[in-house]
């Protein structure tokens, strides 16, 4: 018999289950679409665990809580601890200096860049965030699901409302939770296969108009992402965004022009006004929501705070009672 019901089997719901289980509770997970898949926005993520880079445009809470993400994920899935690189095209050199000024945890690579990332030949300078990491988000979701299953926590495919469920509930449905103040921020991504190109870590291209990151995945795959548009439009990727993402990748390495375009994706990131996630306590319901573009980076910390609040009454900085 479960002590607590979690609605939503995205990255927030799965992590909530994992942390609650570690805290000695027996959770169950409900999701109207069943186990993780293309129906959830977690599926479309980049999988960068890059708290310092995110610090350039995020609240300090993101940098602070993102620190333990790589270690937390390593409990359940393969994490590549190879750092991340930030580069610019020649004429935007000033952007690199500005990024360096606004972030911590990096060092500037000049000639050594050739040794660190030999295939990155268009850049002659990069910021190296050596302690950062990345993972394959789809593999991570499946691994976390399997790890939960091994501990007897299963995902039931069922459409349930809060009223249908007795006892304590964790609502981790993202936008479907319909919380006031929660908005959807559209993101679009592309997956390419380019077996000739070898990158061992995520690369961010700073660009005044078309910023881009490229995350390498197994099998010569590369995830290109991601746009960030203040819109709840769920339609497929626009021609403009495709052009921008592909052009930026091409500028970084012209061999991307020959890549096979495997997949495009669009979904909405749930976000509160400050783009910082929250644990919202409302009676017997605890909402875990607003992970924005930091699902993989912040879900472990958010789930930890939810578990500590439920089992020990500790009110962490992400917890809001109302």
């Amino acid at each position: 018999m479960a002590d607590i019901t979690i609605i939503g089997a995205g990255v927030a719901g799965l992590w909530a289950a994992w942390e609650l289980r570690k805290a000695g509770l027996t959770p169950r997970i409900l999701d109207r679409n069943g186990p993780p898949g293309p129906h959830g926005c977690s599926w479309w993520a980049g999988g960068m665990l890059a708290p310092y880079c995110e610090g350039a445009v995020s609240e300090p809470a993101i940098v602070a809580h993102g620190q333990r993400a790589a270690q937390a994920w390593a409990e359940v899935t393969q994490v590549s601890h190879r750092g991340s690189l930030v580069v610019t095209l020649q004429r935007d050199r000033a952007e690199l200096a500005r990024f360096a000024q606004r972030t911590r945890g990096h060092r500037l690579l000049g000639a050594e860049l050739r040794e660190v990332e030999p295939d990155l030949s268009t850049a002659d300078q990069a910021l190296f965030f050596e302690s950062e990491a990345h993972l394959d988000p789809r593999a991570a979701l499946l691994d976390l699901t399997a790890a939960l299953q091994a501990h007897g926590v299963t995902i039931e495919q069922t459409e349930a409302t809060l009223e249908d469920i007795a006892g304590p509930v964790i609502d981790a449905r993202g936008l479907a939770a319909g919380l006031a103040g929660l908005r959807g921020v559209r993101g679009e991504m592309v997956v390419l296969r380019a077996p000739d190109i070898r990158l061992s870590r995520p690369v961010r291209l700073l660009h005044p108009r078309h910023p881009l990151y490229i995350v390498p995945r197994a099998g010569g795959l590369f995830m290109l992402g991601a746009t960030q548009i203040e819109s709840a439009d769920r339609r497929g990727i626009s021609a403009r965004s495709t052009l921008e993402l592909l052009s930026a990748a091409y500028a970084l390495d012209p061999r991307f022009a020959e890549a096979e375009l495997l997949e495009t994706g669009t979904d909405l990131r749930p976000a509160f006004a400050d783009n910082v996630p929250r644990v919202l306590a409302r009676g017997r319901v605890l909402h875990l929501n607003g992970l924005f573009r930091h699902g993989y980076l912040l879900a472990p910390a958010l789930a930890r705070q939810a578990a500590e609040y439920l089992t020990q009454g500790i009110k962490g900085d992400l917890v809001h009672e109302d």
Binding site: V57, S58, E59, R183, R186, I229, E230, S231, A232, D233, R234, A271, F272, A273, D274, N275, V276
Partner: peptide, 28 residues
Amino acid sequence: PSPAVLEDAFRASRASVATVSLRREAGQ
């Protein structure tokens, strides 16, 4: 960086006018 920062910037500046772009955020 976020709508919260946008709002704070407007309050701090007491700007009289907000310009908004329609193309990409159209609808939704």
